[in-house]
């Protein structure tokens, strides 16, 4: 709760007296069950389709369950197995690098893009729609296009070599780190449009008067961006940062697409979710170990979120 909330009071007027007065009156006006009625449907869905399966995951983590049968209690064996899993070490490092690179880029770039398409210019509907298409492009076509770009004999290597930047091709799709960064660029490419529209909806709330006042004061574009736009969308930005963190730690499809599901030589370019998928899919899937990995990922995700919440509270 504190994570995203506390900055909102910034907008509240400083006249504390009237505010407490109305607040206490509103408590009398607000019937006690009204909020419960409003959240009731959401809570039903939360319990049936989210919490119930989550409990399932937690229980499975202590069993050797398979999709069909099995499922004796095995204590903490699945968690002990993690300690010996050197693929998991690679996956954790990858997921964390992924998050650290994606977080700043995807927080800022979609906001800039939103500012670019915010202004009503002729044809802007077309651009907005076009920028959103990567979000919904089919995985098969994305794989084709990106391989065509990044392949040893692909467009980027061909251009770089013909311009004399490179003597030989860069192994974008086979070297561990290059592969990771190729996947990150794919994530950012897809994320641009996705986060752009969330920012757009928040930009409407940024007061134009403030912008104009700052312009009158002689603030340049950069200053106005930092002192008006960013504080104005701060709430949304924090929410977006949470979403980026969660989805970066859970990256799957980009790495899967670029390595054709192999996870690279030695499986060193797998993410944690790729490991979960590998173990859980199919008839012989090891649901127990996959569930234990899910819980590990949950714990790891909580960490950076707490950090973010702390930073937010301090500033």
């Amino acid at each position: 709760m504190v994570l995203l909330a506390n900055r909102d009071r910034r907008r509240a007027p400083h006249g504390g007296g009237t505010r407490t007065g109305t607040a206490s009156r509103s408590i009398r006006q607000q019937r006690w069950f009204a909020p419960l009625l409003l959240v009731a449907p959401a809570v039903v869905w939360l319990v049936v389709f989210n919490i119930w399966p989550s409990i399932n995951t937690v229980v499975l983590a202590f069993t050797n369950a398979k999709p069909l049968g099995g499922g004796s209690f095995v204590g903490t064996a699945n968690f002990e197995r993690m300690l010996d899993d050197d693929q998991l070490v690679y996956a954790l490092i990858n997921s964390i690098v992924y998050m650290l690179v994606c977080l700043p880029l995807l927080t800022v770039l979609p906001l800039l893009l939103a500012l670019l398409v915010e202004k009503r210019l002729p044809g802007i509907t077309f651009f907005r729609t076009a920028f959103y298409t990567p979000v919904i492009a089919s995985a098969v076509v994305v794989a084709l296009i990106w391989n065509w770009l990044l392949d040893d004999r692909g467009a980027i290597n061909a251009i770089a070599q013909s311009l004399g930047f490179l003597s030989g091709p860069l192994p974008f799709l086979t070297d561990r780190w290059l592969l990771l960064f190729s996947a990150i660029s794919l994530t950012i490419w897809k994320g641009l449009g996705y986060y752009m529209i969330i920012y757009l909806s928040a930009l409407g709330n940024v007061s134009r008067e403030l912008h104009e006042a700052a312009a009158v004061d002689g603030a340049g574009v950069v200053r106005r961006f930092l002192s008006v736009t960013v504080p104005g969308v701060r709430n949304t930005m924090l929410l977006i940062m949470v979403l980026i963190m969660v989805s970066a730690l859970r990256v799957f499809s980009e790495l899967f697409i670029l390595t054709n599901g192999t996870g690279g030589p030695g499986g060193r370019v797998m993410s944690v979710v790729m490991l979960i998928q590998m173990y859980s899919r199919g008839f012989t899937g090891n649901l127990g170990y996959a569930s234990a990995l899910s819980i590990l990922l949950f714990v790891i995700t909580v960490g950076p979120m707490v950090v973010l919440a702390r930073m937010n509270r301090r500033s």
Binding site: T174, G263, P265, F283
Partner: peptide, 26 residues
């Protein structure tokens, strides 16, 4: 040999081919 197993075998063979570890280690 299910899907996860073939994935793991392919990963190790690929690692050996790439020259990062010896074939026997892989």
């Amino acid at each position: 040999v299910d899907e996860a197993m073939s994935t793991i075998v392919n990963q190790q063979i690929s690692l050996a081919i790439s020259g990062d570890v010896t074939s026997q280690e892989a």
